[in-house]
Design a protein around this nucleic acid. Structure first.
Length: 845
RNA sequence: GCCGAGGUAGCCCAAGGGCAGAGGCGGCUGCCUUAAAAGCAGCUCCAGUGUGGGUUCGACUCCCACCCUCGGCACCA
């Protein structure tokens, strides 16, 4: 303590000793606390709570954040996700929940393989080195994960069960090998799922994707199309994500209608959503690869050339034009009996519908463009109407410039003339059915999930190809099919394929024949991540994939936090896996994630951050300068969780000053208490109590609504109130109480600072174990309120009235105000009174 | 083209029928200091809420149309 001479008046507001004025130094206080949390497993749940069904009495809560891919140290996006997530988790714990908060690594993937090829790195060593770096950053930043749950998808102990999942799906007929036109990425040298192709380019490599026929493994996700669509209504996700999934599934209702070739040799089914327009079908189009066409044209070198040219085109090129090939036969329109020309054109896709269409140029823009280009008949079969059914100008085939897709009544359509198009659609569909010409049909845009990858840093597909038995699943007790340690990444093509023993050193599990090879493809890494939230329940269990009872109790995940870039891919695949596993009795849940929060992006000057743009900020730098609490609070204060953060607009220094102010105010209070300084007076105390109660109510509402930016604003307001109250250098119990409340409310945001100050205030326990503060709402009740007085809706004055005053009282008080009276010259025709809020006089004249 | 989200002060952003301003940044002035930084105190006069209509006693807020910005989807018959 300082040596204050007895003759000197105490100077309460100014600490005189260096020890008491010590500055806020996050680098001194944070690391020891972070170390203790890690070493003592402070935030781990007892394992038995994870492996058995949770007890509802403990308010169990499964909080999940998307596990990181270890391509280097954490970036700002990770820091934002984890900060939001951790704030949520810490707040939940303080409000009485038993929170399961696991972490792991999505550790298979191409970057490791590329590092191996380009730099000779060992993919495993490279991956685990990155994981170590990320883990250390996560711990320094105070994210309160359960370190007992850690899993790595590249660990045989994990991918053994990824292979188990594959085999379960295989046994159920949900995994199959089939030939299809697939997306080939020439840069990454692998096929891609449709979901991984954006604008015709590989999502990862950016290379223009080619469509090539290949035999590959698929998961039959289309079996669940309807349920995946319908159950979107049962989950609490952002509307834009649900819409993205709805669009991706692409359900449409129409009919399949049977056409015949004019020679009567072939029957061809088409799918259409507009059976009502069939009288306008003036030509017919096949996908170039359609089997009827390839069979009939088998000996035609000219067609071969066309097919060859088409197959070389990327999707981007395909969309550019309306090329077609006139086939040497016609097709009969079942309704008109007419013979219409048949074409092959690549605007018709083999893998949607039936791969053939009836073309109605008047009502379909693509058909219209094709008809114009190839000089085909455009037949008007609909007369446009307004939405209300009023007749509009008729269409003119010669002058129209685009297809008509609006409402109308049928014309030139035989018995259906005069019917509104929707009614015609129903009648024609029904008539098709009764005549045996077709059936109603629901179609989806969703395709099966292609999971084969010609890559080697992934989970091997557990299948053996036997010369006699065909494809044979590896028995469950022989899992995992392990990746060899000594893959050579310098070879051309797939290292796994060319490994000296992996492929051939195997016998058929069924017949024992040595004439067998292993499947050399690995699974899409999205398979790894489609079930990891189940594995978190028992990551070390080598007897089962997950505890079934516990999974049914913990799922669905209560809150999932992560980037919106997974709107379709990962989130759709995970939903499929849960539904498929549910139907096999492995988990009692319909959905994996009940509630989803998509955090915004961290950008810089309106653009995404990247090394090449030179605008990259990494969490490590911010940490080095200001510490973890400032980084966290800055992230949370910068914007609402869903909104983007433009790092150019944020002020780490402002937040840092605020935290330093809380530090100083608390140490000053501690000094005053030690010195026995006087307390603030009663009025100031009452005011501060009121401000504290106000902050508890307001901040709690914001925390509940996950609006951490405004919650922090409320905490700043309380900080300012403490500052005001202690200006005279006095403190006392009300100030202490206000500070303790502030620290408790701030704990989820700035876990280190609050913990340190909590201890310094004399509490041996952790601030993070405190119950969430409850406000004394009686402090918020006031006997008088200020109400607004308007005349014709314009503000004319303010008056004080007793709380809860009736209209008569309020009106009288308002009329007594000089400023108001001056505006009440005309007739008052109406008075609007909103209790405790306002009085509005409506004046005429 | 279709579907979302959003346009509020010099800047980032609050307010979701009832006083346009919670919070921050930046700026200015003063105190403290040999000085600077930090800290503290005070000030920030200028927006009427993208544009045009409508509903209402009253609209940033609800409705309609349009403009701009940012995302997502897009030859799916």
């Amino acid at each position: 303590m300082s040596e204050v001479s007895a003759t000197t008046e105490p100077a309460p507001s100014t600490p005189v000793d260096g020890a008491e004025t010590q500055r806020y130094d996050p680098h001194a206080i944070e690391p020891p606390i972070a170390r203790a949390w890690t070493e003592q497993r402070t935030y781990s749940l007892p394992a038995e709570l994870r492996t058995s069904p949770p007890d509802p009495a403990q308010s169990p809560y499964y909080a999940l954040t998307m596990f990181p891919y270890p391509s280097g140290d954490l970036h700002m996006g990770h820091a934002e996700i984890f900060t939001i997530h951790d704030c949520l988790v810490r707040h939940l714990r303080m409000t009485g929940h038993r929170v399961l908060n696991p972490i792991g690594w999505d550790a298979f993937g191409l970057p490791a393989e590329n590092a191996a090829r380009n730099r000779g790195a060992d993919p495993r060593a490279w991956t685990y080195a990155n994981i170590d770096e990320q883990r250390s950053t996560i711990q320094r930043l105070g994210y309160s994960f359960d370190w007992d749950t850690v899993l790595y998808t590249c660990d045989p102990a994990y991918y053994r069960w990824t292979q188990w999942l594959f085999l379960k799906l295989y046994r159920a007929g949900l995994a199959y090998r089939g030939e299809a036109l697939v997306n080939w990425d020439p840069v990454d040298q692998t096929v891609l799922a449709n979901e991984q192709v954006v604008d015709g380019r590989g999502e990862r490599s950016g290379a223009v994707v080619q469509r090539v026929p290949r035999t590959q493994w698929f998961f039959r996700i289309t079996d669940y199309a309807d349920e995946l669509l319908d159950d979107l209504d049962t989950i609490d996700w952002p509307e834009r994500v649900k819409n993205a999934q709805r669009a991706w599934i692409g359900r449409s209702e129409g009919a399949e209608i049977v056409f015949h070739t004019a020679d009567g040799d072939d029957e061809i089914v088409v799918y259409t959503t507009r059976p009502d327009t069939i009288f306008g079908a003036t030509y017919f189009v096949f996908a170039p690869e359609h089997p009827v066409v390839t069979r009939r044209m088998a000996d035609d070198p000219d067609y071969d050339a066309f097919l060859e040219a088409v197959s070389r085109r990327s999707d981007v090129e395909r969309q550019a034009g309306k090329d077609g090939y006139r086939l040497p036969f016609d097709v009969l329109n079942p309704f008109t009996g007419e013979s219409i020309p048949a074409y092959a054109a690549d605007y018709v896709l083999m893998d949607y519908g039936t791969g053939a269409i009836m073309a109605v140029p008047v009502g379909d823009q693509r058909d219209f463009e094709f008809a114009r280009q190839h000089d085909l008949e455009i037949r008007v079969i609909i007369h446009p109407t307004s939405e209300d059914g009023d007749l509009l100008e008729p269409l003119d085939a010669d002058t129209m410039t685009e297809a008509y897709v609006g409402p109308g009544v049928m014309v030139n359509s035989g018995a259906y003339d005069g019917l509104p198009w929707e009614e015609a659609k129903q009648r024609i569909t029904a008539d098709c059915a009764s005549k045996g010409w077709g059936t109603p049909k629901v179609n989806y845009r969703l395709r099966d999930w292609l999971i084969s990858r010609q890559r080697s840093w992934g989970a091997p597909i557990p299948i053996v190809h036997c010369a006699d038995c065909g494809e044979v699943p590896v028995p469950l007790d022989q899992l995992p099919v392990e990746l060899p340690e000594d893959l050579d990444f310098q070879v051309q093509g797939s290292p796994l394929d060319q490994h000296p023993t992996f492929k051939h050193d195997v016998s058929c599990p069924q017949c024992g024949s040595g004439d067998a090879t292993r499947d050399v493809d690995t699974m899409d890494t999205f398979v790894d991540s489609s079930w990891y939230y189940l594995r978190y329940l028992s990551p070390d269990d080598d007897t089962r994939s997950w505890p079934v009872d516990a999974a049914g109790g913990w799922l669905p995940v209560d809150q999932y936090t992560g980037g919106v870039e997974h709107a379709v891919l990962h989130l759709l695949y995970s939903r499929f896996v849960v539904k498929a596993m549910r139907d096999r009795g492995h988990v009692d849940a319909d959905e994996p994630f009940q509630r989803l929060l998509n955090q915004g992006q961290v950008i810089m000057d309106g653009a995404s951050m990247s090394k090449s743009k030179g605008n990259l900020v990494v969490p490590g730098e911010v940490y080095e300068t200001y510490g973890a609490d400032t980084l966290r609070a800055t992230m949370l204060f910068a914007s609402a969780p869903e909104d983007d953060i433009d790092w150019a607009d944020v002020s780490t220094t402002g937040i840092n000053k605020w935290l330093a102010r809380i530090w100083r105010l608390t140490l000053e209070q501690i000094n005053r208490e030690a010195a026995g300084d006087p307390a603030i007076d009663a009025d100031a105390a009452a005011e501060l109590e009121h401000a504290t109660a106000r902050a508890v109510v307001d901040a709690s509402a914001d925390f509940d609504a996950r609006k951490y930016n405004t919650a922090i604003a409320k905490l700043m307001t309380l900080t300012n109130a403490v500052l005001d109250a202690t200006r005279e250098g006095r403190g006392g119990p009300v100030v202490r109480s206000a500070l303790e409340t502030l620290l408790t409310l701030l704990a989820p945001v700035a876990p280190f600072l609050t913990e340190e100050l909590w201890h310094r205030l004399g509490h041996p326990d952790s601030v993070h174990d405190q119950p969430w503060p409850q406000a004394d709402t009686t402090l918020l009740v006031t006997d008088h309120v200020e109400i607004v007085v308007q005349v014709n809706g314009k503000l004319r004055g303010k008056v004080r009235v007793p709380a809860g005053a009736d209209q008569q009282t309020a009106e009288a008080a308002a009329r007594a105000d000089d400023r108001v009276a001056g505006h009440l010259d005309g007739d008052v025709v109406k008075v609007v009174h909103v209790p405790d809020k306002l009085v509005n006089f409506v004046v005429k004249g």
